[in-house]
Write a protein that binds this DNA or RNA. Structure first.
Length: 259
DNA sequence: ATGTCGTGGTTACCACGA
């Protein structure tokens, strides 16, 4: 089975590429983030024509997550239990579902904006709610993974220039400690291989020619429990999908499982 | 360079988020 995660940065803007990519990559299950649309306007019909069912949690121009599957979708849960919300609003940043033999969460972790910003506090609180939510599945016998845009680079090796990220979000000890907590809960980082260059970056800012210069970050992660991790036969970042006109600023992370 | 995208509202530009 082939499972992937991809921050599409608007499913409306990305639809032609998304449909083509699903077919060309042979992906069975996709966790997607930043749908940037409502559940009503989500292109479920177009995906259904390709044989995919969609489970969607989306409310408008910001955020929005989904699981798209051609191996079934069951037991859908929309939202994170205990989600702290931001500024009084609980945002659509998490959805979980069982797709064939695997249970997955598709997550879009808050960005944090700046270390001194309230959004950074929200980010850390949100991680704690995620940790609590996945505790049972993380130690279970069924293959399970949290997949998505974590907005944290796990190590300095996961950013193109650690020095330029001093005092920035995405690399702070507290954010990395949140990832450590997820690993201590029973998950492990399924690190994909890069198709080019030395680092499996998954995100390159649209600005400043970051992609051609390979100024990237690995912030789209696959955190799987032991049964999931043991089933992994390959994992890679499809950087081809970051190329050209109409690309998202994130590339898909693709994982092959023997399940 | 605050260098690019994408969205929706206050629309043939702006503000916001990333």
């Amino acid at each position: 089975m082939r499972i992937a995660t991809w921050n599409v940065n608007s499913i409306t803007a990305r639809l032609p590429r998304l449909l083509a990519w699903l077919e060309s990559s042979g992906t069975d299950v996709l966790c997607l983030q930043e749908a940037k649309t409502t559940a009503e306007q989500f292109p479920s019909a177009e995906l259904a024509e390709l044989g995919y069912e969609s489970a969607v949690h989306a409310t408008g121009r910001w955020n929005g997550v989904a699981v798209v599957s051609r191996v079934g979708i069951a037991d859908v849960v929309r939202g994170l239990p205990g989600d702290p919300g931001y500024d009084g609003v609980v945002e659509p940043r998490a959805i979980s579902a069982t797709c064939g033999p695997v249970r997955v969460w598709s997550v879009y972790v808050p960005n944090g904006r700046e270390v001194e910003h309230p959004h950074y506090v929200y980010k850390l609180q949100w991680f704690e709610a995620l940790r609590a939510a996945i505790a049972g599945d993380a130690t279970g016998s069924r293959p399970f993974a949290v997949m998505g845009d974590f907005n944290v680079a796990p190590t300095d090796d996961d950013v193109w220039d650690p020095a330029s990220f001093e005092d920035s979000t995405h690399v702070t000890p507290a954010e990395r400690a949140a990832l450590t907590s997820l690993r201590e809960a029973g998950l492990s980082d399924v690190v994909p291989r890069p198709l080019k260059y030395d680092h499996p970056y998954t995100y390159w800012d649209y600005r400043q020619l970051c992609f051609p210069k390979n100024r990237g970050m690995r912030i789209d992660l696959v955190y799987g429990n032991t049964p999931f991790a043991k089933a992994v036969s390959d994992a890679y970042v499809d950087r081809e999908e970051r190329k050209g006109k109409g690309a998202s600023d994130h590339a898909p992370v693709v994982v092959d499982l023997d399940v």
